[in-house]
């Protein structure tokens, strides 16, 4: 009976039809492949549309520029010129928007702030950029509610930064001063964290023994070359929360006389003036540490 049903004409036709439509295989892997091809096809078509649209826009702005070069003013009154110039109004406005976008971005790059108005000016969001030398680091955000005075609505400032204290000092009275102080604090923290990262990446032989969330204490262990390998414990304390250089350096070693040696005294003073990862690299290159 089973065999008879299997060789049924209808089921045979159904199998043929499914095969013709590409469904002859119910293999999930094959169906996935079909789906993937379909997705890729859609992506190609979308990108082509985007490309073609951009080509048209580039052509339009080129024409607008050519018209301006020929001396057709965008606000001219002549009928022909007027019709022609109205086509160029949009590209010119786009040029103005690009100009403003560039200037705003430049302000963000050089000033470290970005301001965005939210909820029809009822709230303002400030982005605070941080940097260390040539590298831009994390960006922190602070949203202020302006409906009843100035209040902090939400933020992603690290908890180790005393935001409440800073806000009490001058948030309501002098907003630019508050933002400046806050940015100095986040910049200091970001710089110290980045230095810690550079020590781990560039001077692998130095072990980081201890640090804290504010990165104001950094205890490092270096190995001193010699017949008997000696360890040197280096404690860096950052007394100023807005600075990226330590204010106090202490050296400890099992060999008590070692920290008093002239080269280590020099290294100690160097840590107060030069970023720690650079000092450690120099010490390693000179063979003072392993």
């Amino acid at each position: 009976m089973e065999e008879a049903r299997d060789h049924n004409v209808l089921s045979c036709l159904q199998r043929l039809e499914m095969g013709a439509l590409g469904f002859h295989s119910r293999d999930p892997e094959e169906l996935l492949k079909k789906d993937r091809l379909h997705q890729l096809n859609c992506r190609v078509l979308t990108l082509r549309m985007q490309r073609n649209k951009l080509k048209v826009e580039v052509q339009r702005i080129k024409e607008a520029k050519a018209a301006l070069d020929e001396g057709i003013s965008p606000d001219s009154n002549g009928e022909e010129n007027g019709a022609k110039s109205s086509q160029h109004t949009l590209p010119l406005l786009m040029a103005r928007r690009t100009q403003l976008k560039d200037t705003l971005r430049a302000h963000h790059l050089i000033g470290g702030y970005e301001v965005v108005e939210i909820d029809s000016g009822r709230r303002v969001c400030y982005s605070l950029s941080t940097e260390y030398e040539d590298t831009y680091l994390d960006t922190y955000h602070l949203e202020l509610d302006l409906t009843r005075g100035v209040r902090i609505h939400r933020h992603d400032i690290p908890p180790s930064i005393p935001l409440k204290n800073l806000a009490q000092e001058n948030l309501e009275t002098d907003l630019p001063a508050f933002l400046h102080t806050l940015r100095e604090h986040v910049s200091g923290l970001a710089s110290r964290l980045y230095q810690l990262r550079l020590i781990k990446e560039q001077v692998e032989t130095v072990s980081v023994m201890e640090t804290n969330p504010l990165c104001s204490v950094l205890v490092l262990m270096c190995k001193i070359p010699g017949e008997e390998e000696t360890a040197m414990l280096l404690s860096l304390r950052y007394g100023d929360p807005i600075k990226a250089l330590p204010t106090r350096v202490t050296l400890e070693s099992s060999d008590k006389s070692l920290p008093d040696e002239p080269q280590w005294k020099e290294a100690k003073s160097l840590f107060l003036e030069v970023p720690p990862h650079r000092v450690l690299l120099a010490l390693r290159n000179q063979g003072q540490i392993l």
Binding site: L47, L54, P74, D75, T89, L93, A95, Q99
Partner: peptide
């Protein structure tokens, strides 16, 4: 697309540098 975007931005910048005054006029006219 990336190349076209860069080209478009650069032409727009050229226009805004060369014809700053005209851009103000356009805004006024609109």
């Amino acid at each position: 697309i990336a190349a076209l975007e860069a080209e478009k931005e650069n032409i727009e910048r050229e226009v805004s540098v060369q014809y700053g005054q005209e851009l103000s006029n356009v805004l006024g006219a609109i």
